[in-house]
């Protein structure tokens, strides 16, 4: 039997105890998996260091994906953010660069941490790093944020899915943005309720997004969708901290995501049969990379 949790219950517990969500999530993990807290914390800390390293690596000049289709976009955007001219403000644009950086590392056969998947692995590190830089939060606070993110991801995975092949991009970049938004709120010192609203707002904003990668590879449009996912998460976190609420509770948003995923045709779930993958340019790229068939 699988233990299912819903988010409202987590929020209620955390608020009653006056602790962050990650405390409740970490406690449950300790009990359910019978692994000592210290060990769980250390494992997450190792993952965080791998994530941070991927952010750094990915924004360097000279990166190139296996197919050669992408490479230096994160570096370009980082340089632009540093110029001070960014219309979206330096933080958001830099967060987008960081997210693309991790995606670039992944498609260049570098080391990343799936969060929840390899294809959406840039959003969480980018958002958490940005939130920590902005608020001066310690590494421990970030690790706490990762537990919050993973706890929400688990609920999404239980109720809906975190795989593009079964739920479309909303299940990968959408789940990642939802996880990152809630974690960012906690890192910034927001309440568990605000974290839930942030997650709901981020997920609502990406519902319905299909998974239609060009040539079936995790490059186009995945890398840029990581950038958008990071911006989406930061904005959702800011809205929630400002006191804006999601009228639809997060558990119901996750339910809607599940319904939409179930209704989504297979051709738009990571099969490269429709959508962007089926455009004339995408088909030309496919022939160029894999030869004619």
């Amino acid at each position: 039997m699988i233990l299912r949790h819903d988010f409202a219950e987590l929020v209620e517990k955390a608020e009653k105890r006056g602790c962050p969500l990650w405390e409740i999530i970490l406690e449950r993990e300790e009990q359910e998996q019978a692994v000592p807290r210290r060990e769980l914390w250390n494992k997450m800390t190792d993952y965080w260091r791998t994530m941070s390293q991927a952010v750094e690596e990915g924004m360097k000049a000279g990166n190139r994906s296996l197919s050669g289709l992408v490479g230096e976009e994160a570096y370009q955007l980082k340089r632009y953010a540093e110029s001070g001219r960014a219309l979206g403000g330096p933080n958001t644009v830099m967060a987008a660069a960081k997210a693309m950086g991790v995606g670039t590392v992944s498609v260049s056969m570098g080391k990343i941490v799936a969060a929840p998947t390899a294809g959406s692995s840039g959003i969480l590190p980018a958002v958490l790093l940005t939130a920590a830089e902005q608020t001066g939060a310690s590494e421990d606070r970030i690790i706490g944020g990762l537990f919050t993110a993973a706890g929400i991801g688990r609920i999404i995975d239980d109720i809906a899915s975190t795989s593009g092949a079964s739920g479309g991009c909303q299940a990968e970049c959408g789940a990642a943005a939802c996880m990152a938004a809630a974690a960012a709120v906690e890192i910034a010192g927001g309440t568990p309720g605000q974290a839930a609203h942030a997650g709901a707002i981020a997920l609502k904003s990406i519902l319905g997004l299909v998974c239609d990668p060009v040539a079936g590879m995790v490059e186009i449009p995945c890398i840029k969708r990581n950038a958008m996912g990071a911006a989406n998460a930061l904005l959702a976190a800011d809205m929630a901290i400002a006191g804006i609420e999601s009228r639809i509770p997060i558990d119901e948003v996750i339910g809607a995501m599940k319904e939409i995923g179930d209704l989504m045709p297979a051709s738009l779930r990571e099969t490269a049969q429709a959508g962007l993958a089926n455009t004339p340019t995408a088909r030309a790229i496919e022939r160029q990379i894999f030869g004619t068939e």
Binding site: K43, M109, K111, V113, A118, G153, D157
Partner: peptide
């Protein structure tokens, strides 16, 4: 009776681009 681990959501550390 155990649920899924949070490390099935965050993790594994791996060389990209694709888990499969």
């Amino acid at each position: 009776m155990t649920g899924k681990s949070v490390f099935e959501i965050i993790g594994p550390a791996m060389i990209g681009p694709s888990s499969s």
